[in-house]
């Protein structure tokens, strides 16, 4: 179910921990699996558990505990907008409202073209740059409706290197 590259990456993660502590690599293995498949279908969670010789339910416990795992399909770009207090004080509600209006979908939903998902998340640890969101591997900071519009345009245009 996973590519050679993903398996190799999991093996590298596993090597960080004592040999009898394969379970330590579970968080990483789930992340790597999710990166390859876009989300974590149940069969994939079980497969990952098998890789590390763990009971499936143990992997499932972890996959449902941490908020960064998606157990359902999400869009190519998942806008994780922080709604915690510092971002809230700096207008995160407005940012979320703007996104929903702009993309025509609600919180937790994905646009029909499969490009965008909007999610509200708790504190991202970048409060001085509020309002912020996490977008894949990066943070987009001091969001404004205007900066978002530009970003959405660029992403629609296929540019996913934009900051």
């Amino acid at each position: 179910m996973l590519s050679e590259a993903s398996l190799a990456e999991i093996a590298r993660e596993r090597a960080k921990y004592p040999p009898e502590r394969a379970r330590s690599a579970l968080l990483a293995a789930l992340r790597i699996a999710q990166a390859e498949h876009g989300y974590l279908p149940e069969t994939l969670v079980e497969y990952v558990a098998g890789l590390l010789e763990l009971p499936a339910i143990q992997a499932f416990e972890v996959a449902t505990f941490y908020s960064m795992y998606d157990l359902r399909p999400v869009g190519k770009y998942k806008f994780c907008v922080c709604g915690s207090v510092s971002c809230f004080l700096n207008g995160s509600d407005g940012i979320l409202a703007h996104l929903q209006e702009r993309l025509g979908v609600g919180l937790g939903e994905t646009t029909p073209d499969g490009l965008f998902t909007i999610a509200e998340v708790e504190c991202l640890g970048a409060c001085k740059d509020a309002p912020v969101m996490q977008l894949g591997d990066r943070y987009v900071e001091t969001l404004t409706p205007e900066s978002l519009d530009v970003l959405i345009g660029q992403l629609r245009g296929g540019r996913d290197d934009v900051r």
Binding site: R23, A25, L27, A28, R31, Q58, F65, S67
Partner: peptide, 24 residues
């Protein structure tokens, strides 16, 4: 060691659990 989204893992023993591959 990368976390996966859970504030509680900042609590030191939850962090250790998480490092062991468990729920935090």
């Amino acid at each position: 060691h990368r976390g996966a989204g859970a504030y509680i893992c900042g609590e030191e023993t939850a962090l250790m659990e998480s490092l062991e591959g468990k729920k935090g």
